[in-house]
């Protein structure tokens, strides 16, 4: 009877250990401070706003999309995304890019756009006419 608990306990411990290991290993932190993004060199999810005033480049042939993101402290970062410009990019209030900062550029493997209008009312900044 006792042996059963030992075996069971060991299995649970191994599972929890594996869980913890994999959780840490595959963990990606959200980072809204680009200074930290540039320093870590680890894969992370950087959140920022698309710098519309700056140059962007869309290369259909090679499927790259290059643009600039800005964080809350006005730090700007160049992003190269291997893919096409995502849906909703123009109206996104926030852009989340997953990837790594290397050689002065953020190489994104995924771009996620957060849109105000998707489910809820659009907040409009207005000025009197």
């Amino acid at each position: 009877m006792k042996a059963r608990y030992y075996i069971g306990g060991t299995i649970i411990l191994v599972f929890l250990g594996l869980l913890f290991y994999n959780f840490t290993r595959t963990n990606i932190e959200y980072e809204s401070d680009f200074v930290k993004v540039m320093q870590t060199g680890k894969t992370c999810k950087a959140t920022g706003v698309w710098v519309k005033e700056k140059s962007f480049q869309e290369d259909i042939q090679n499927r790259t999309f290059v643009f600039y993101l800005r964080d809350a402290n006005n730090n700007e970062m160049k992003v190269i995304y291997r893919g096409t410009k995502p849906n909703n990019f123009e109206i996104a209030t926030n852009v989340v890019v997953t990837g790594k900062f290397e050689n002065g550029v953020f190489h994104a493997t995924d771009v996620l756009t957060k849109c105000p209008s998707k489910y809820e009312g659009q907040n409009v900044n207005t000025s009197g006419s």
């Binding site: 594996l18 869980l19 994999n22 959780f23 595959t26 963990n27 990606i28 932190e29 959200y30 999810k45």
Partner: peptide, 17 residues
């Protein structure tokens, strides 16, 4: 639940486990 803690796991986590 990881995003609540400001973290996020890669899809690999779910597949591996």
């Amino acid at each position: 639940s990881a995003p609540i803690l400001g973290k996020s796991v890669q899809i690999e986590f779910y597949n591996e486990m």
